[in-house]
Amino acid sequence: MRCLTDSGKITTDIDSLRSEIRDKSVRVIDVRREDDYKQDHIPTAVNLPLANLLSDDSPESVLKLMNSMGIDNETSVVVYDDTFGALASRVAWTFEYLGHSDVTLLETTYSNWKSLELESDSKIPEIQPKEHTLNLQPNILATADYLQSAKERNDVILIDNRERLNFLEQHIPGAISLPYRTLATKDKILRPKDDMKRLLENRGITENSEIITYCGSVGTLSGLAYYALKSAGLSNTKLYVRSFKEWKNLQKPTEKQEDASYWDLSAE
């Protein structure tokens, strides 16, 4: 099995994707809503609205979805969305978790693809189902229990990828704030590698640590961060996929920035 992500490839650039589509050597997945997909999409793309995946993201169920999209262990997969890469990241991470490592993110969003006037169509491709094996990768998943014990360790960095205001109001104790917006540039879903490395190094996020990312509820923003970290060579990263929503529901401790009514500065 090829391991592109392990070799450091996190995103697929526009030009490469266009030639892979011409060569029919890629399965493109569009993670937008069905209506949007039906209007137009990148040629040959199949639709997997994130909600469909989240409605039951048990490994067995996701495996069925993969099979129905014609993905086997050898298929090269590129995922895109129109939500700065966060939804695409959640899908890519799930595939990776199931043992499919040849999955990358399109470097840009569908809006940007359209604004560049690149090809799109409304054809829905016919797919031959395939068989993917299940090879779970628990090393990239953090559960609440795992997080609770891991975060006491010195070599673990917990990253909150929600917006700064959400973080100030409430977060998991010990987390540091790295808002998802920080990860992108104006037209790419992730910063260039050197840029990202410098930013993370400044924050003391280095490869000597195990990193766990989380966000608000379903692991999308933190999914993007998971790939951002990998793109900078930080591969010892786990996604706390159930994120802050579960943490609060479990009534685990939270912390806030005291003595300031910072929310009043957020121009409402």
């Binding site: 917006e163 700064r164 100030l168 808002p179 917006r181 924050r203 910072y262 500065l265 121009a267």
Partner: peptide, 22 residues
């Protein structure tokens, strides 16, 4: 959006301030 709280603050001396920056 990247480093502050998604808003900025105009001062009375023709500065613009970004608050809550790490």
């Amino acid at each position: 959006e990247q480093f502050s709280i998604g808003s900025a603050h105009f001062s009375t001396r023709e500065n613009i301030q970004l608050h809550w920056v790490v």
